[in-house]
């Protein structure tokens, strides 16, 4: 059933596309982390307006299809000069979408920082900014690492949608090859293994980071 000739011919193209997939995953995850941290901070410490803004952002991004968000970012934002920049638009759309989930993850982790620490920090006269930077955010980041990793594997798995705005990533490359070769399963299974491998690398990196940062806790 497996035709090795098709596979060896297809591998270079799939490999090139895998680089696009990884780059898009990293860029979108970074945007997700930055936006998610800001949104969580604004939600918890930004007063009623900050709270409402952050909640609306989370609900909008989680509640509408990523496909629509991609179209809105790519075609709806020409004033900021994103038209024609398909990769940038895809990273931004996927990153903003994932940022909503990151907000929720970080919010829960921030709320889990023991209150006693905050009281102690206030008592010894630490400023508000220092409490956030040195006590709250580092701990929240460390406790939420497993959840964040799971979220970034979801980012990895949503990158195929970028093919609708002309980013030729791994899945669409597979579709192109399949429609030329009519191969039933070779290309398809190769790509599945590709995603599992990329996710494994991501999860292993995260676990080693988790081990190294554990000493920071409590």
């Amino acid at each position: 059933m497996v035709d090795l000739a098709i596979l060896s011919q297809a591998l270079p193209a799939i490999g090139t596309a895998a680089v696009v997939t990884v780059a898009l995953t990293l860029a979108a995850s970074l945007i997700s982390l930055v936006v998610g941290a800001l949104s969580a901070a604004v939600q918890l410490g930004g007063g009623p307006i900050g709270y409402a803004l952050s909640r609306t952002y989370v609900s909008l991004m989680r509640g509408t299809p990523l496909f629509v968000q991609l179209l809105v970012v790519y075609y709806g934002l020409p004033p900021i000069g994103i038209r024609g920049q398909a990769f940038l638009a895809a990273a931004l759309a996927i990153g903003l979408n994932s940022g909503a989930y990151t907000t929720e993850i970080l919010r829960a982790a921030i709320l889990a920082v023991p209150r006693g620490q905050l009281e102690a920090a206030t008592t010894i006269g630490l400023t508000w900014g220092k409490i956030w930077r040195r006590i709250v955010l580092p701990q929240a980041f460390v406790t939420s690492l497993p959840m964040l990793t799971a979220e970034f594997t979801i980012v990895l798995k949503s990158t195929p949608l970028a093919s609708v705005i002309a980013v030729t990533e791994m899945t669409y490359t597979g579709v192109l090859i399949q429609s030329r070769t009519y191969s039933a399963s070779e290309v398809f299974l190769t790509i599945a293994v590709g995603y599992i491998l990329i996710a494994q690398v991501l999860m292993r990196l995260s676990r080693s980071l988790e081990r190294r940062t554990r000493r920071l806790r409590f």
């Binding site: 798995k157 195929p160 599945a192 995603y195 599992i196 491998l197 990329i198 999860m203």
Partner: peptide
């Protein structure tokens, strides 16, 4: 572990 890495479409 497999499900975490596998796109649902696959």
């Amino acid at each position: 572990e497999i499900i975490l890495g596998l796109p649902i479409l696959v």
